[in-house]
Amino acid sequence: MEIPFNVKERPDTGLYNGKLGVWFFLASEVMLFGGLFSAYIFLRNGVEYWPHGTDYLDVPLATLNTLFLISSSVTMVMSWASLKLNDFKKFKLYCGVTLLFALAFLVVKYFEYSAKFAHDPPYLPSTNNFLGIYFTMTGLHVLHILGGMLVIGYYFGPGSKMWNTEPERFTNRIEIVGLYWHFVDLVWIFLFPVLYLL
C-alpha cells in the first residue's frame, strides 16, 4: 500500500507529506525554544542584577562557532542543490564538509564547557541563573546539533544508497534534513547575541 503524496507534491497544496511534516515539527521547536527564551526574559527582568555575557563567556570562541554553523548551513543547502543538479559526488563532498563544520562546533563547545568547569571557583549551572539558563539553552542546542549530525551522517553514509533507487525521494529527504539543520543554525543566531553579547 502506497501513501499518496509521499514523494510527489499534492496538486492543491503543492507540498509532499514530509516537507509539511517537518515544518510542523519546526513549529513545535519554535515553541520549545520560545519557552526557554520566555524563561530567560522572565528571569532576567525578575532580578536586580543580571551579569553581562562577557563576565563569564568567551566571545571570540562563540564568534568562531557562529561562523562554523553558518558555513555548515550553506554547505548543507549546497549539498541539496548538488542533488538537484544530479551531481552525487558533489553532494557527498558538501555533506561531509557539513559534518566537519558541525564537529568543529562541538569541539569548540567542548572547550568552552570544560573551561567553565575548570575555572576557580567553577562556573556551574547552579552558580547563578545566568549560567543556569546558558547551560540549559546551549545544552539543548547541542543536543539538536547531535541529532542533526546523526541524521546527516546517516544520509552521508548508508542512507545514500537510496539515491540509486529513488533519487527524487532521496533529494526530498535531504531537503527536509536541510530545513531542520537551518533551523538549528537559526536558533544559534539568536542564542549567540542573547547569551554572549547582550
Binding site: 543547502v77 543566531i189 547575541p193 553579547l197
Partner: peptide, 18 residues
C-alpha cells in the same frame, strides 16, 4: 540593535536557505 541584526540574519537564513 543586537536583536535587530540577529533578526535580519535569521530572516536571511529562513528566506533563502529554507
Amino acid at each position: 540593535l543586537g536583536l535587530f541584526v540577529a533578526s535580519i540574519k535569521a530572516s536571511l537564513v529562513a528566506c533563502y536557505f529554507m
